[in-house]
Design a protein around this nucleic acid. Structure first.
Lengths: 197, 197
DNA sequence: CATATATTGTTGACGGCGTCAACACAACGT
DNA sequence: ACGTTGTGTTGACGCCGTCAACAATATATG
């Protein structure tokens, strides 16, 4: 089998691993190089600079979020608070975000505005397209109210993102709640229900 | 009048200015010191480290957000899409966020979790308390549905934050829209309307 | 096959960063 | 008058991203 996955792929997964395990500040080009078994400036042979590397990591994670949603929408094995593909997709999206918080913040951070990469933009577009599709479909089968698709999509996406981001920052956490993530499924359900007929 | 505002206050406003004008990466202790007319290590006489300084800036901005909301809630001079204190407060909150995007991201970034400062926590609590109050009051006068206050508050705050944050990151921007912020009042109005009777 | 070229890797060095140590000086309570 | 405390300074250290220069290997070309 193919053991050598290519230096570029190694650098990418090394950066991703570091980001997941130690947060953003542990992701240095030196550490990434070391983790990938190459020297500190090797990344420059595959990425323009550090931001370019992070941008690629962000793009990969955006794809992960989208893929998680898509799969969960069709998976009816587990019972959900609301038995619709849209709710299952949303909940899974949030769970995927919480699995790798630093990745999620990377994806929606503002660094992408400064140096836009095509791959990241494509991943974002694909994600947005799926949001659009699933909202449209939910409207067709009557599980979402029949107002402007773009408005409903924006409302749902912003709600979902707000729930995730405020959970990550800890501002949603009540004093007595330890985790803060336990009320997420219910919050998402409430947000979705508000747009159901 | 008092021209000398104290070095600590000078450092604080210098850091805030730098953050507003040049973004996070321009805020270095050396630049802050220079802007405040002192040397590069002077901040260490007033703050534990850089994060502590940024934490103080974040706390100040959190207060700014809250104060903006409070004032706008009572200001009935301008006509709004929804004529309630809650909507006026929310819209102003979003506008204040967009006035200084880097400040807003600082407030809701995850750095505060690593080194919690009392001042920042207090500012966050005061903001949350006001959200709670205005939601409660809106329920009393019948402009919000009468469900669990905490749920309604969480739903509204996450929606508002999601709209702001996704606008800042550019993900809400449609191809044809240049600014991306122009549809914000309408989006906020839609979010609020969903929780009106 | 031989050779020119492109690709991918290395080490050395530079400036900028946060931070600590050491020192200077002013204010002030005793 | 004097030690203490608070507030400022410069020097130095290690880590960072990045560039320049060089080496080796793969690839394409005659």
């Amino acid at each position: 089998m193919d053991v050598s996955a290519g230096t570029r792929a190694n650098l990418l997964s090394a950066a991703s691993e570091l980001l997941a395990q130690g947060g953003p500040e542990t992701v240095t080009l030196r550490a990434v190089g070391a983790a990938a078994g190459v020297s500190r400036t090797a990344p420059y042979r595959h990425f323009a600079d550090k931001d370019d590397l992070l941008s690629a990591v962000a793009a990969e994670n955006f794809g992960f979020l989208t893929a998680s949603m898509k799969k969960a929408a069709e998976d009816t094995s587990k019972d959900a608070l609301i038995d619709t593909p849209l709710y299952r997709a949303f909940l899974r999206y949030a769970q995927a975000a919480l699995e790798r918080p630093a990745h999620y913040r990377l994806v929606f951070g503002d660094f992408q505005i400064n140096n836009p990469s095509q791959a990241l933009e494509d991943a974002a577009t694909e994600c947005a397209n799926y949001f659009y599709e699933i909202v449209e479909e939910s409207q067709r089968d009557g599980t979402l109210i029949d107002e402007d698709v773009r408005d409903i999509m924006a409302l749902l996406w912003t709600s979902l993102h707000g729930i995730i981001d405020l959970t990550l920052s800890g501002h949603l956490r009540e004093p007595r709640t330890v985790d803060g993530a336990e009320s997420m499924p219910r919050l998402i359900a409430l947000a979705v229900k508000n747009l159901m007929p």
